[in-house]
Amino acid sequence: MFLALVIVIILSLILVMIRALLGPTLYDRLLAVNSAGTKVVILIAAYGFLTGRPDFVDIALLYALINYIATIAVLKFFEYGDLGSGAYQEDDL
């Protein structure tokens, strides 16, 4: 059961990576990378169960945190060209 789950998630990861390589726009690639991150979270948890060590879910939880922060950071960087700036500059206030 866990082996089938791992195989399905790896096939899905390959499909998602095809979209990340083909994607016509930047946002397609970003969406594909975000989706791949969620799949990797499931993959890490399932691999832990497959090898009989359920403690791997710690790493999955950590990866979920990093994935969300990374998506928002990349979006902000491409929208403002700068990670330090906010939506409202000091001149606007």
Binding site: I9, L11, S12, L15, V16, R19, S35, K39, I42
Partner: peptide, 8 residues
């Protein structure tokens, strides 16, 4: 998961 990947 697989349907979402195919749709993507």
């Amino acid at each position: 998961v697989f349907g979402g990947a195919v749709g993507l």
